[in-house]
Amino acid sequence: MTETKTRRRGAELERAILDATWEQLSEVGYTALTIEAVAKRAGTSKPVIYRRWASRAELVIAAWADRIPIDPAIPDLGSLRADLVWLFDRIARRVNGMMSETIAGVMGEAFRHPEVVDFLRNRLETRPMHQSLSTIVDNAVARGEMRPVPLTRRVLRMPVDLIRSEAMFSREGIPTVAVEAIVDEIYIPLLKGLAVD
């Protein structure tokens, strides 16, 4: 008697693809990762993957976000600095969870393919981190630590930009001391300089 192979769909198929992507990424790195190898490992086909993710970079970012999800809960630790260190440290831990070769590979594809730039920009501008940062600044204003600050897209995106830049030169991951320096030397002075009179 022959067994009929059931076809996976929806969430089950997506789970298999994301797991296969992460496993391939861990084994061979970003440069050697192929959609064909991911499809084979997930038991599906390249067209099925490309219907969901338009590029290798998009697929890898989706697998990474799935493995290291963003927690939208924001503690109020009593000071702007403590809250920012907490947030920047969370971002650093997410970046530390992605191999630096992968970050470099995704950024390289972004330089060559405008659609990858659009995808990354959309992810950055719709992520819960923006709301988290707004909440932290609002709490600081309410405590009387600072005057209100207009949080433009660039200001909201800057924590990720600063941490990603630090990650490019850190082989062992971003240490807490570096996170604190970024907050103290760059981000708090920026916010205070932008505060409205």
Rank of each mutant, 00 (worst) to 15 (best):
A62E: 07
E23D: 15
K46D: 11
I49H: 00
A92R: 01
I17W: 00
E12C: 04
G144Q: 00
G29V: 06
S55M: 07
N96H: 09
D71H: 09
R9L: 11
V160H: 13
F169Y: 15
G105T: 05
I91A: 14
V137C: 04
G144P: 04
I35V: 11
A181C: 04
A73I: 15
A20E: 12
I182D: 05
R147T: 06
D76V: 01
D89I: 11
A92M: 14
I74M: 12
I91R: 13
L25C: 06
I174S: 01
E14W: 03
W86Q: 10
P150L: 14
A65D: 12
V95I: 15
T44S: 08
A181D: 08
L59S: 05
R51M: 02
D161G: 10
E36W: 08
V106M: 00
P189D: 07
L25H: 09
R112F: 03
V179R: 06
R121L: 15
V95Q: 03
F88T: 05
D19V: 12
H130S: 08
R123H: 13
L33D: 04
L124I: 13
P189Q: 03
D19S: 14
R123G: 06
A140K: 07
L80W: 06
L18I: 06
M168P: 04
K192P: 01
L120N: 00
A178G: 05
P150Y: 13
D89W: 14
I186R: 11
L194R: 12
A63L: 02
T31D: 12
I174T: 01
A62S: 13
S170K: 11
I68V: 12
V196T: 15
M98P: 03
G108Q: 03
G193I: 02
A92S: 15
P148R: 10
R153A: 12
I68Q: 14
P175M: 08
L162F: 12
A63K: 00
E14L: 13
E115V: 04
D184W: 09
S134T: 14
A39M: 04
D71M: 04
P189S: 10
P189T: 04
V196I: 15
R171M: 11
G173F: 02
E109I: 01
A39H: 05
R52C: 00
T34A: 09
T44A: 04
I49E: 06
R52M: 02
L156F: 10
V196A: 10
T126F: 10
Q24K: 09
M158K: 13
F169Q: 12
P75K: 08
R157G: 13
E180L: 09
S79P: 05
A140E: 04
Y30D: 00
R112T: 07
G105A: 06
A63S: 14
F169P: 00
E125R: 14
A195V: 07
F88A: 08
I182W: 01
G10H: 11
M98F: 03
A32K: 13
T152C: 09
A39P: 03
D138L: 12
G10R: 13
G97D: 05
V85S: 05
E180I: 13
H130N: 11
E58N: 02
R9P: 01
W86H: 15
A181S: 08
R81W: 15
T44W: 03
V95F: 12
Y187N: 00
T31C: 00
K192I: 01
R56A: 05
F169M: 09
L33V: 10
P72C: 10
P189V: 06
